[in-house]
């Protein structure tokens, strides 16, 4: 089993760090401390972190912070960042207004 999925593993208690107030997710204004605490709250995957804290769910959709969040979570879990599966990629890849997202162009005949 991948160590990230072994939830019985003891990662120790949350120990406050000097740079816990460092902002990581610029859009949603989530700090390093919040991310580290979330890991100790049981959020061990990037998808969970995302849903729990909204990191990478702001306007930029994780363009800037994904890699940083990954590094922080991995360090907290004592694993290599490459062991962490990136959060799911899904539509829309870029910020888009709902009215545009819902405005489907009329279907044209194939080959046109």
């Amino acid at each position: 089993m991948n160590s990230v999925n072994d939830r019985s593993r003891d990662i120790g208690p949350f120990v406050p760090g000097p740079d816990d107030d460092m902002l990581i997710c610029r859009c949603e204004e989530i700090t390093k401390g919040e991310i580290r605490k979330a890991v100790h709250d049981g959020m061990w995957t990037l998808t969970e972190i995302r849903r729990y804290l909204r990191t990478g769910m702001g306007l930029c959709q994780g363009q800037t912070c994904s890699r940083l969040v990954k590094g922080i979570v991995a360090k907290e879990l004592g694993i290599s960042p490459s062991e962490l599966e990136p959060a799911a990629s899904r539509v829309p890849m870029r910020p888009i207004e709902m009215e545009v997202f819902a405005n489907e162009a009329p279907d044209e005949k194939e080959g046109e």
Partner: peptide, 12 residues
């Protein structure tokens, strides 16, 4: 906040 990426990615 101000200009950060300048190519429409970061939305800052």
């Amino acid at each position: 906040r101000g200009i950060f990426c300048a190519i429409g990615r970061c939305t800052d």
